[in-house]
């Protein structure tokens, strides 16, 4: 088997939905998050466990996983979003580790037998199809385009530009930042739930901190704040490792070279037109 196009498309789609969420938080609102993969894993485990433990149908699990990630994102955002820039980045990184460790130590009962989540969790119903992923990508994209153009989206962009001025113009910045974080996290949760049902086996190792960095790279490559950029950057960085499979161990080096060239020649990304000072 040479190149599995369906595989690449599904992974790209899952990543696009997830990175659209990160774009809202970082590209639109200007809040640097290194914890996005935590919400991806919350979505994946919520959906997987709902289906395995309670026999919840896939569609319902998908919705609940999305809401769960959004809820936790919002709650977590309340204390943390008063931080700015690198302080916020470190705090989100800490959250990412907390989620990972919590999952590592969880014990669940599936069909009467106890199971530790530190080992891989298998037998997840494989309901994620290409059609489903692509339809959700279209919906997610339309939602984000509409959101960015709306009153709410303009307020988020003003927070990115100048938090103090935004507040002085009457914007409740705390509320807006928390909502942005919740919606962005919900998208990661949806991505995670789709991922779990595509892989059918997940383990905590799939959702480490490096995964957050990978998401950030996709966003930066495409261009922060640009929805077209998210789609392009994510597809390119999802496809490269697959397309370069023939190059074996050199492929991650080439991945790195792409990033370096991009930053030198197009620092605002493929389709980006704004600077984000986080």
């Amino acid at each position: 088997m040479s190149i599995d196009i369906v595989n690449i498309l599904i992974f790209s789609g899952i990543n696009i939905i997830t990175v659209l969420g990160l774009n809202l938080i970082t590209g639109v609102t200007g809040q640097l998050s290194l914890g996005h993969s935590a919400f991806f894993s919350i979505g994946a485990y919520t959906s997987a466990l709902l289906m395995l433990m309670l026999g919840v149908p896939f569609g319902v699990a998908l919705v609940l996983a999305t809401l769960m990630a959004g809820l936790i994102g919002g709650l977590f955002g309340i204390p943390i979003l008063r931080l700015r820039g690198d302080y916020l980045a470190i705090a989100t990184l800490g959250f990412c580790e907390i989620v990972r460790v919590v999952i590592l130590n969880l014990k669940v009962t599936i069909h009467g037998s106890e199971k530790l989540l530190s080992t891989s969790l298998g037998g997840i119903p494989g309901n994620t199809t290409l059609i489903l992923v692509l339809s959700l990508v279209v919906l997610a994209t339309l939602f984000m385009v509409a959101l960015e153009r709306s009153k709410f989206g303009l307020a988020l962009r003003s927070i990115r530009e100048d938090e103090v001025a935004s507040q002085m113009m009457g914007i409740d910045i705390a509320r807006h930042k928390i909502l942005s974080f919740a919606i962005g996290s919900a998208f990661a949760g949806l991505g995670g739930a789709l991922y779990a049902s595509y892989m059918t086996v997940i383990s905590p190792g799939d959702f480490g901190f490096m995964r957050s960095i990978e998401m950030l790279c996709m966003l930066v490559l495409g261009g922060m704040g640009s929805i077209v950029g998210v789609i392009a950057g994510t597809t390119v960085l999802t496809a490269i490792p697959e397309l370069l499979r023939f190059a074996q161990e050199y492929r991650m080096i080439m991945y790195g070279i792409v990033l370096i060239f991009m930053m030198v020649f197009r620092p605002r990304g493929l389709f980006g037109s704004i600077r984000v000072n986080v």
Binding site: K151, L154, A155, R157, S158, E161, D162, V164, A165, S166, M168, M169, G170, I171, I274, R275
Partner: peptide
């Protein structure tokens, strides 16, 4: 009560019109 700033604090990368629309947000 609304204010301006000693060192200009516009929303630089938003358009002039968007700057005004934002002020009308509330």
């Amino acid at each position: 009560i609304a204010r301006t700033f000693q060192n200009i604090r516009l929303f630089k990368q938003l358009t002039v019109l968007e700057n005004i629309i934002l002020a009308m947000d509330h």
